[in-house]
Design a binder for these strands. Sequence first.
DNA 1: CCCTTGACTATCT
DNA 2: GAGATAGCCAAGG
Length: 114
Amino acid sequence: MSETQFKFDKAIWKTVSSIKRGGVMSYGQVARIAGYPRHARMVSKAMSRSAEPLPWYRVVKSDRTLAFEVGSTAYHKQKNLLEKEGVQFIGGKVVPVDSDEGKDLDELLWGPPE
DNA sequence: CCCTTGACTATCT
DNA sequence: GAGATAGCCAAGG
């Protein structure tokens, strides 16, 4: 494994680990904060390569939907882990815990706007 | 070196 | 607002 790649991985891991419990971050955001703009696609690889357990499930797509195919095993696994941390799912999109307080009660009761 | 792939993103129809 | 299109960039065949 090259030196530059190790540096990249480390930066990604550090950034992912910094995501607060109950919060989420997009791939592009993680890449940017780690110091590697436009490397969104590489973030997934870096996480897969991680030896240490990482809160990979706190990383979602830019539109706040999960990156996996809906209905897939991985999709449900990630959804479970997030919900266990208090993250809600509305209309297939995640809603971080700190965001639901400002949310309209209507939407929570009536469900997702289709 | 060319081509394909992918846990992505932004923009246009 | 969903689907198509075009960028993006490292890896691997």
